[in-house]
């Protein structure tokens, strides 16, 4: 009982993943700044932002539905923190595990998007509603390639449990090469999930001020930003666990360091991708996902099906 509470609240649960999320946001912003020939924020910037938002006034617009408006950030945050408990970090065993938890992890990663939709919709501001509708429209485009590419890796490993998939690939590192196409597809899809350029259409600040977050202020905004940071870390950690689980074979201390480096490398790749591209329109984004990403994910599925027939 106490053990489970420790897992959920301290490590690898809420406290650790929040800290890691804020560090990852700093890495993302620093790399973004350096690539734009700037100095970038100091190392404590994301912590200062978070504490400042906690200390600000909470405004709930009088037109908004106060309950839904207040609950949406909490739902988003708790969903993403839960996913991290099921990801094998550096031991062969995750904090919690059951057969089928990869499906649950993917579905829990969808909940923040729905929470942003609900929060934006119930704040009844025009900009927030536009942003939240775009959020959900985008969801239908990137979710399919993301699920297909991650699940095709699971197909090759012949398991629906993240722990078994990570074990399978860490025992056979060469098999990771077969999934490179799926990794590329899911990186692009993750950009859509995190609402970063070129898929930052839902919070395009030059068009619809801040999208679904327009009416949020103070503590609720802090929770929303934390949820997005943790979503980035959890998404990257999921990719590391499914596509490159090399840390598992190295033992506790070294494995943990390698895992952290791998996750930060995925985050760095994400910020590189968002620096070099500009924002698309929503219809271009949907076209791109269905015309190019989905066929590539299908190709990955086909490759893995054939491999499974040949190798196993």
């Amino acid at each position: 009982m106490l053990n489970s509470l420790f897992f959920i609240l301290v490590f690898p649960g809420f406290l650790f993943v929040s800290f890691f999320g804020l560090v990852a946001e700093y890495v993302d912003r620093k790399i973004y700044a350096r690539l734009q020939n700037r100095v970038g924020p100091p190392w404590f910037q994301t912590f200062a932002d978070f504490i400042k938002l906690l200390g600000k006034e909470d405004i709930v617009p009088c037109e908004a539905n106060a309950r839904m408006f207040g609950l949406a950030p909490i739902f988003a945050l708790s969903a993403v923190v839960t996913v991290f408990l099921y990801i094998p970090i550096w031991r062969y065993d995750a904090a919690f595990s059951f057969n089928g938890d990869i499906i649950m992890a993917l579905y829990l990663l969808t909940i923040p998007t729905l929470a942003f939709f609900i929060g934006g919709w119930y704040s009844t501001s025009l900009f927030a509603r536009l942003g939240s509708v775009r959020c959900v429209t985008q969801l239908f485009a990137y979710e399919v390639p993301l699920f297909m590419s991650i699940l095709s890796a699971a197909l090759l490993a012949n398991s629906w449990s993240l722990r078994d998939i990570a074990n399978f690939y860490s025992l056979r590192p060469a098999y990771c090469l077969f999934n490179l196409l799926g990794f590329a597809v899911s990186m692009v899809a993750l950009l859509g999930k995190l609402e970063k350029a070129p898929f930052d259409i839902p919070e395009a600040e030059t068009e619809i001020v801040a999208g679904a977050f327009t009416e949020y202020s103070g503590r609720l905004l802090a929770l929303l930003r934390l949820a997005i940071d943790i979503e980035m870390v959890v998404g990257a950690a999921l990719f590391v666990a499914v596509f490159f689980p090399f840390a598992l074979a190295l033992g506790a201390a070294l494995g943990f360091i390698v895992f952290i480096i791998e996750v930060l490398a995925v985050v760095a790749l994400l910020s590189l991708m968002r620096t070099v591209v500009a924002r698309l329109r929503i219809d271009q984004m949907i076209d791109f996902c269905w015309k190019y990403l989905v066929p590539l994910a299908l190709l990955q599925l086909l490759i893995n099906l054939i491999l499974k027939g040949v190798l196993v």
Partner: peptide
């Protein structure tokens, strides 16, 4: 980028709800 106000944590926000 020439003056790079993000060094001091300054960010330009679109909505008054986020601004200080």
């Amino acid at each position: 980028p020439r003056y790079d106000l993000e060094r001091f944590g300054v960010q330009l926000k679109g909505t008054p709800r986020h601004a200080d």
